[in-house]
Structure formats: structure tokens, C-alpha cells
Design a binder for these strands. Structure first.
Length: 863
RNA sequence: GCGGGCGUGGCGGAACCGGUAGACGCAACGGACUUAAAAUCCGUUGGGCGUAAGCCCGUGGGGGUUCGAGUCCCUCCGCCCGCACCA
């Protein structure tokens, strides 16, 4: 028997699908009957890749999952849109330009070509005619227009904001480029600097983005929770405090106005206007602020740093306790971006305030008494009490519950005109300006007399210049000799272009809509097309995008709706977040990382170097990454084993939402299975009745059993694909294959049942192993293409068994199993369970206390 | 630090709504075929005790709810993801 030649087969079927245009998406596709309705639409989208050069296993996993869904839905009678594009702007292209002197455009184009080829090897059911790249002017010109529309609708504005500044390279750094407070290239301690930048007003939609999460019922609960916490709605109060000897009050936002009597200090952000004012007379404060700025802009860095404060010497007057004066600090953990940039500290009921109070020896007065505590001796040690309780030490609030006290104190503050109840969101506006070259230029001209002026839409696009140099650090657009000079569109005076480009998250916030009308030239989007395909029915990507990309896209969709491009609010009706691809790590004797190709694994789990035979330490499995050298190249895998094998292994074993481990043994196992399927078909085909032979009237007992397995397999694989349990679908197919392989046909009707089984096997496996599926189908003598056939239907009569195995427990421990007719009554189950010899033995001589019967499942006898 | 998640045999995992823990795959071991090997096929495989029938233990640790817990609750431990300029 010849071996399955995947190379020949995969290329042949890919060509056949392309010739037939199988994966072209059509807005109107007849469902079948002449003059009948169109097929319903289904939009499957995987997060588009960044063209880094080669696909990695994470891509293979992502696109395999999406392709299974796309192929399955197509078989289920949907008109499917399954496009592909490139998230092509971004930092790596600039890094390549700096390190290797390759222009970003050229580097990116080459990478796209290479990765397109690799993706095509995978046999994905993609409509390649809709391919887009965000770095293409035919894409970003529309994005510039959208920017202007956001601006016209008051959803973009300009203000000062903070960036990480590398004082040696004179460059703005991304948070990822700041390593332990130092620039990654220069190693110089970074500073914070203020720049004038553009912002999307996402906070205008805070409440809507929060509320609408409820409607996203096909999103993972954890992602909705993360977004909810990110938006961070909190109810509280704004309170104005008098500062001794000063006119201007200090405004504070707090979620715990009920603990006002427990206040022992106040703190403002290092970037609070008051802090800036005080530096004039306090050189120590200036040093302190400089020290805070060295932490950079990352919230993570600020929150993990040691909490420090600088006493301003100013005193804040307590509004309710006459004569009480509290110290005012500048503290490194107070964020100017949240609330008012000023807080009051109540150490007894907030852990961070407590840590701060202990450090600076400030008072800790409890004002909330835990339900089981005694007012006389309750004290706060190292742990703040944040629970509910009854208020005490608090004047008019005494004896109230925490919620009641909040209401009472807000009423009092409002009555006295020094505060008000308010809702605060943690969500901040989205800064989109980037001081970089390889991005979408911001279509604005800065005029000395008119200020920032939008470029007229007819003059778009603002093209990126090709002739840029990366010799100098900083933004090449800024250094370009001529690019930035322009005439003011308003007054005609000599002016300068905005040399910033847009955050790449802007590119990815509307690409899914552009796929609906990728060649539209006159406008960014054609509403009829967008509303035909949108929302994306199933979006698939990594969990790392759970917040920013998805939230920004939801915001953008709301903007697009406002400008009349769509009637939808939400871009993604269904979301699936897949896990990462991991691999064991290896270290040689010197401690350096070793690539799996250099490692020989022994049967006992130890490993030696392939060439030198030296001992290798096997480390734990971690996310594949170049830095740990534990990557496996998809192209090499596909060359060696074929796309179907790679896809099959990707789907086997691990549930798709969880991290999976890539192993050499696993891919070998998948490869053996493809060979086994091929062999089984080849051996059986000559004995099978012709395709489409009529169903025999009767089947032998074993033939009937085989048919039951066949129809149960249809049922369970269907259910598993619908529920994204691909690893289970794979296991069901393995199990079914074992059944089919063990079957010994004896009669004509047995052979008919066997053909049915093999045909089903090919069809169930096809979404996961599309080439082999087609090859099996042809091997069974079918001339049509599986990709064009509907999904198999199970016969309900063959799926339900007439008898069930029921477990019998005595005192909760399994002691026997009994066979019962399906849906037997409680009495019958109880009787047969008690009659079982094993049960008899254990029950003998004891009084029956209770017998619990769960239909078709279990009988528990309690003695 | 804050927010979110995960933890089951030697390994990846299965177990529906609280109802027979370990399906399926990998690895390992034994056997068949072969001059031999590969491939393939058959069988065994959570741990302990027992000749056997069978019994006991077992889902990261500890505690709880329940006739019954991998699943629910409390608590501790370990690992992973995100934290707004990586994409």
C-alpha cells in the first residue's frame, strides 16, 4: 500500500478550491431552491497578524481554529466571510530599519509576501481577494478621513500628556522599551515629559461601553469582567477641602466619604498643579518629583514601587472636626489621570493608606467597626479593615451602616456646598499620537496663526515619505528636510505638518469593517456592505487583547455609527480567546538556551546534545519565544508532516482556550493518524458497495451497532465543534476510527454500514483536516468536493440507546452497576439495585435509611 | 501593587446541571509479524494491599456544605495573562 502523499494532495486540493472559488464571500448566495431565500451570513475573523517575517505556532493555532469554524459554518449552510489582512504598521519595522538599514516599507512588504505564502500552505478557507494591509495608502487614507470625522464630531481633542523620554537618544520610549527605569538602547535613566498630543474621547462612552457588556453573551465571562474592571465605574464623592492660609481649595475624589472622620493625611499627585506651584519655594519637592518621574508612565511601575511621600508643610482643614489640621503630602502613588489627582488617606480602612501611615508615623483611627468587634478594644494592626460594619468615631454618622453613612455624608456635603456625590470612571481617554515614522500620518497642519487645522478630505491621503533616514534618533518625519513644510489650509501661511503618526491600535479598530468592502475607494466604508456582514459572528484571538484592542474597537464602532457608516454598536458578537503555544526549554552546560532541534530526548526524559552528546537540562514548558529558543517553525513542520497533520495536532489534546504544549511525540502521533485514515480507506474501498447505493431494509446486529456509533459520532462531533471543544471532537473521531477499524463486515448490509461509517469519518474530519478529507472522499469513489457538501445529519433513532448503565452506590461509594431500560421508573431502579448481590451483601442486616434515585444515572443506597 | 485566570495518572487531557474520576492521545511495558529493523496489529498501564473475589487511598494543601464534591463555599500554596506607547 502506498503512503499518503500529503505534498501532492495538499497542493492539488488547494488549487482545486481556488479554481472553484470556494471561499469567495458573496453578499447574496442562493440557499438551494430556485427563487428561494439567500443563505444567512456568517462572519468568522481571526485577529490579523503583525507581519514579523514568518508565521509562528501561535498563528497556526489561531488560524486553524478559525478555519474549522469557517468550514463548519459553510457546511451548515451559511454564506461565510473569512478574510485575512496585515496589521502592518508598528515598531519592529523601525527597529529593523535601525539595525539592518532596510526601509520599513520594503521590510514589511517582504514579510507579508513570505507570511502569505506560509498561510496558504495551511490550506485555510480564506477569501484572499479581500486582503488588506494597514500600511497601504489605500487603507490609511480612509483612516485619515475617519480621524477627521472623529474630530468633527468632537470625539478627538488635543491636550498635554506625559511620555517616557530618553534623555540620551532624545526619543519617546514605549513602556516596553523602558527596562527598570532605563532606556533599552541608551541605558540612561528615563524621564517623564509633557507633549501636546491627540486623544480619542473614549470616556464619552464609558457608561455605554460598560452597560453594553451585558449584551455580549457570546464573550467569555472573564473578558467582560476584565473590561468592566478596566472601565472601573465607582460611585463616590468630590469634596473641596480648605488649605490653611490659602484661597484655592483642594478638590479630592473618594469612594469612601463615610470614612472622612478617619482621615489622617492628604496626598496629591507629583503632577498636580499645586505640586508644581510649590516647587518654587521647596527645592526638596523638586527633587522628589524628579525621582517620581524616573518611574516612567507605566501604572505597573508606579504601583509596584515603594510608596513614598514628601511633606509639603501645608495643612488641610477637616470640614467636620473643627480645628483639626492634617498634613498634605505629594505622593508617588497618586495618579493625576484618575479622579482629581488628590486623595485623603484613611489608614484604618485602606491598605495602601495604612502602609503609608506606618511609614510616616501618621494616626490610624478606625471609624468602621466590624460586626463582631468591640468598640473598646478594636484596633487596626498591619491589615486595614475594608469590610462593612457600623460607623463610629464619626459624629453625625455614628451607628450607621457603611452604605447609609455614604448617603448621609454626601447629603451633608451637598448641603454645606463643599462636595457632591459623583460617578468616576477609571477609563482614560485614548492617546493616539506616536512620535514615530511607521504609522498612519495624522492629517493635521499646525499654523502659527490658525493653530491645528485639519487637512481637507479631498487632499488626502497624507502619504508617508519613502526617503527617510534612521541615522538620527527620534522621529524621522520630524527630521525630514521637506516633508513637514506645508501651507495652512485655512490661511495659506507657511505651516508645519503634524509629524506624529497614529497608534497602531487605530489601524486595528476598524479593519474588521473594512473587510466588508475592501476595495471601496470613495469612502472608508459602505454602510450596506458593513451592515450586511457586521457584526463579526465569531472573533478569535489571544487573551492578551482582552482589554485594549477589544475596547478600542467597541469605541470605534460607536463612532462609525455616529458618522453613518453602520447601524451597529458592537463589532464582535462572539469572541473566543485561545491559549498560547508552549514548548519545553533546554539549557546546555554553559547555561545558554538550546533549540529543540539540537536536543536528543532519551526515553527516561533526560536529554543530551545532538552533536556533542553532552548533558542538557530540561526546563519547564514556556510560551514559545525566540529569547528562550524554544520555537518550532511551522513551515518546517508543514514541509515534514503536511498541513493537515499540523492542524490536527493543534486541535488535539488541549482545549483551545488553554495553553497547549507542542511536542515532537504529539506531532508524530498526529502524523500516524493521518496515515492510518488513508490506509483504512484504501483497504476498505474496493469491498464497499457503490456510492449512493440505497439503504438496506435490515441490518445485522453488528451492522446496527456500527450505525449507532456512526450517528453518535455525528452528534458528538457536531456538539463539540459548536462548543469549541475541538480536543474532544478529535478524541471522538479517534474513538470512532477505532470502532470502524475493528469492524468485520460479513454481509452486504454490513458493507453498506461500513461505507456510511467511512463517509462520515471523512466528513467529520474535513473541517480539521480538509485536504485529507477530500482525498478520503475521492478514495471512497465520490466525484464531488466535500467542501461544497452540507454537514452530515444524524438519525435521532440511532443516537439514543434503549438501555443505560446505572451506577449503584452504598453510602456514596460505588459498589455495582446495573443495566436498566432507558427512563426506567424510580421503583424499578430501586428494586434492581437492591437485588444486586454486591449491594445485598453490604446492606444485609442493616436498616435502609434512604434510597436516592437519579434517573438514568445513579442509585445511592444509604444504610 | 491592582485586575483576570489556571492547577486531575509518567505527560496532554476527558468527566454534560453536584451523580460510575482517568474517555481519547502520547509515553512505557509485554506479545504477533520480520533474517533484522521500521511500520503495522493485539494486550497491559493512577497508587497501595490481596493467590483471588475484593478492599483501601486518590483530582495542588487544609477545612466545610451534601445521601454523594474534580465540580459548590472558605482558606492557603504554586503558575500564567493584562496594567493604557509591544502587537
Amino acid at each position: 500500500m502506498s503512503r499518503y502523499n500529503f505534498k501532492e494532495s495538499e497542493a492539488r486540493w488547494q488549487a482545486a478550491w481556488e479554481r472553484a472559488g470556494c471561499f469567495r464571500a458573496h453578499e447574496s448566495e442562493p440557499a438551494g431552491e430556485p427563487g428561494g431565500a439567500s443563505k444567512p451570513k456568517y462572519y468568522v475573523l481571526e485577529m490579523f497578524p503583525y507581519p514579523s517575517g514568518r508565521i509562528h505556532m501561535g498563528h497556526v493555532r489561531n488560524y486553524t481554529i478559525g478555519d474549522v469554524i469557517a468550514r463548519y459554518k459553510r457546511a451548515r449552510g451559511f454564506s461565510v466571510l473569512h478574510p485575512m489582512g496585515w496589521d502592518a504598521f508598528g515598531l519592529p519595522a523601525e527597529n529593523a530599519a535601525m539595525e539592518r538599514g532596510v526601509p520599513p516599507a520594503e521590510w514589511t512588504r517582504k514579510n507579508i509576501a513570505a507570511m502569505r505564502g506560509q498561510l496558504k500552505m495551511m490550506g485555510l478557507s480564506i477569501d484572499w481577494e479581500r486582503e488588506i494591509a494597514t500600511c497601504d495608502p489605500s487603507y490609511y487614507r480612509h483612516q485619515q478621513r475617519l480621524f477627521l470625522e472623529f474630530l468633527e464630531h468632537d470625539l478627538v481633542y488635543r491636550r498635554e500628556s506625559w511620555v517616557n523620554w530618553d534623555p540620551v537618544d532624545h526619543t519617546v520610549l514605549a513602556n516596553e522599551q523602558v527596562v527598570e527605569g532605563k532606556g533599552w538602547r541608551s541605558g540612561a535613566p528615563i524621564e517623564r515629559r509633557q507633549l501636546s498630543q491627540w486623544f480619542f474621547k473614549i470616556t464619552e462612552f464609558s457608561e455605554d461601553l460598560l452597560q453594553a457588556l451585558e449584551s455580549l453573551d457570546r464573550w467569555p465571562e472573564k473578558v467582560r469582567l476584565m473590561q468592566k474592571n478596566w472601565i472601573g465605574r465607582s460611585e463616590g464623592a468630590r469634596v473641596s477641602f480648605k488649605i490653611a492660609g490659602r484661597e484655592a481649595p483642594l478638590e479630592v475624589f473618594t469612594t469612601r466619604p463615610d470614612t472622612l472622620y478617619g482621615a489622617s493625611f492628604f496626598a496629591i499627585s507629583p503632577h498636580h498643579p499645586l505640586a508644581a506651584e510649590l516647587t518654587a519655594s521647596d527645592p526638596g519637592l523638586q527633587d522628589f518629583i524628579a525621582e517620581c518621574d524616573r518611574l516612567g508612565t507605566s501604572e505597573e511601575a508606579i504601583e509596584t514601587a515603594e510608596k513614598k511621600g514628601h511633606d509639603t508643610g501645608l495643612k488641610v482643614l477637616h470640614p467636620f472636626v473643627k480645628g483639626q489640621e492634617l498634613p498634605l503630602y505629594v505622593a508617588n502613588f497618586v495618579l493625576m489621570e484618575y479622579g482629581t489627582g488628590a486623595i485623603f488617606g484613611c489608614p484604618a480602612h485602606d491598605q495602601r493608606d495604612l502602609d503609608f501611615a506606618r511609614k510616616y508615623d501618621l494616626g490610624v483611627l478606625p471609624v468602621v467597626l466590624p460586626p463582631d468587634a468591640d468598640a473598646q478594644d478594636f484596633a487596626v494592626g498591619d491589615t486595614a479593615y475594608v469590610g462593612d460594619g457600623s460607623i463610629y468615631n464619626s459624629g453625625f454618622m455614628n451607628a450607621m451602616s457603611v452604605p447609609d453613612a455614604k448617603k448621609a455624608v454626601i447629603a451633608r456635603l451637598e448641603a454645606e456646598g463643599i462636595g457632591a456625590g459623583t460617578v468616576q470612571y477609571r477609563l482614560r481617554d485614548w492617546g493616539l499620537s506616536r512620535q514615530r515614522y511607521w504609522g498612519c500620518p495624522i492629517p493635521i497642519i499646525h499654523c502659527p496663526s490658525c493653530g491645528p487645522v485639519p487637512i481637507p478630505k479631498d487632499d488626502l491621503p497624507v502619504l508617508l515619505p519613502d526617503d527617510v533616514s534612521f541615522d538620527k534618533p527620534g522621529n524621522p518625519l520630524h527630521h525630514h528636510p521637506t516633508w513637514k513644510t506645508a501651507a495652512c489650509p485655512s490661511c495659506g501661511a507657511a505651516a508645519e505638518r503634524d509629524t506624529d503618526t497614529m497608534d497602531t491600535f487605530v489601524d486595528s479598530s476598524w479593519y474588521f469593517a473594512r473587510f466588508c468592502c475592501p476595495r471601496e475607494e470613495d469612502k472608508p466604508l459602505d454602510q450596506a456592505m458593513v451592515d450586511h456582514w457586521m457584526p463579526v459572528d465569531q472573533y478569535i484571538g489571544g487573551i492578551e487583547h482582552a482589554i485594549l484592542h477589544l475596547l478600542y474597537s467597541r469605541f470605534f464602532m460607536r463612532g462609525l455609527k455616529r458618522f453613518g457608516y453602520t447601524a451597529n454598536d458592537e463589532p464582535f458578537a462572539g469572541l473566543f480567546t485561545q491559549g498560547m503555544v508552549c514548548h519545553e526549554t533546554y539549557r546546555g552546560e554553559g547555561g545558554g538556551w538550546l533549540h529543540p532541534d539540537d536536543v536528543d530526548k532519551r526515553a527516561d526524559g533526560s536529554a543530551v546534545h545532538r552533536d556533542s552528546g553532552r548533558q542538557i537540562t530540561v526546563g519547564r514548558s514556556e510560551k514559545m519565544s525566540k529569547s528562550k529558543s524554544n520555537t518550532v517553525d511551522p513551515e518546517q513542520i508543514i514541509e515534514t508532516y503536511g498541513a493537515d497533520t499540523a492542524r490536527w495536532f493543534m486541535l488535539s489534546d488541549s482545549p483551545p482556550e488553554r495553553d497547549m504544549e507542542w511536542t515532537a511525540a504529539g506531532i508524530e502521533g498526529a502524523w500516524r493518524f493521518t496515515q492510518r485514515l488513508w490506509r483504512l480507506i484504501g483497504e476498505a474501498a474496493p469491498h464497499l458497495p457503490p456510492a449512493r447505493a440505497p439503504t438496506p431494509a435490515n441490518f445485522s446486529a453488528q451492522g446496527g451497532t456500527l450505525r449507532r456509533s456512526t450517528h453518535k459520532a455525528i452528534d458528538s462531533v457536531t456538539r463539540d465543534i459548536e462548543a469549541f471543544r475541538f480536543n474532544r471532537a478529535v478524541a471522538q473521531i479517534y474513538e470512532f476510527t477505532n470502532t470502524v477499524a475493528a469492524f468485520q463486515a460479513k454481509s452486504g448490509d454490513d458493507y453498506w454500514a461500513l461505507r456510511e461509517a467511512f463517509e462520515t469519518l471523512a466528513r467529520l474530519a474535513a473541517p480539521m483536516m480538509p485536504h485529507l478529507g477530500e482525498e478520503m472522499w475521492r478514495g471512497l469513489g465520490r466525484a464531488d468536493m466535500l467542501v461544497e457538501l452540507p454537514w452530515p445529519e444524524s438519525d435521532p433513532a440511532l443516537v439514543i440507546d434503549e438501555s443505560v448503565t446505572v451506577a449503584v452506590q452504598v453510602n456514596g461509594k460505588l459498589r455495582a452497576t446495573i443495566e436498566l431500560p432507558r427512563d426506567s421508573g424510580e421503583e424499578a431502579a430501586r428494586e434492581q439495585a437492591l437485588a444486586d448481590p454486591a449491594v445485598q451483601r453490604l446492606v444485609e442486616g442493616k436498616a435502609l435509611r434512604k434510597v436516592i434515585v437519579v434517573k438514568n444515572r445513579i442509585v445511592n443506597v444509604v444504610v
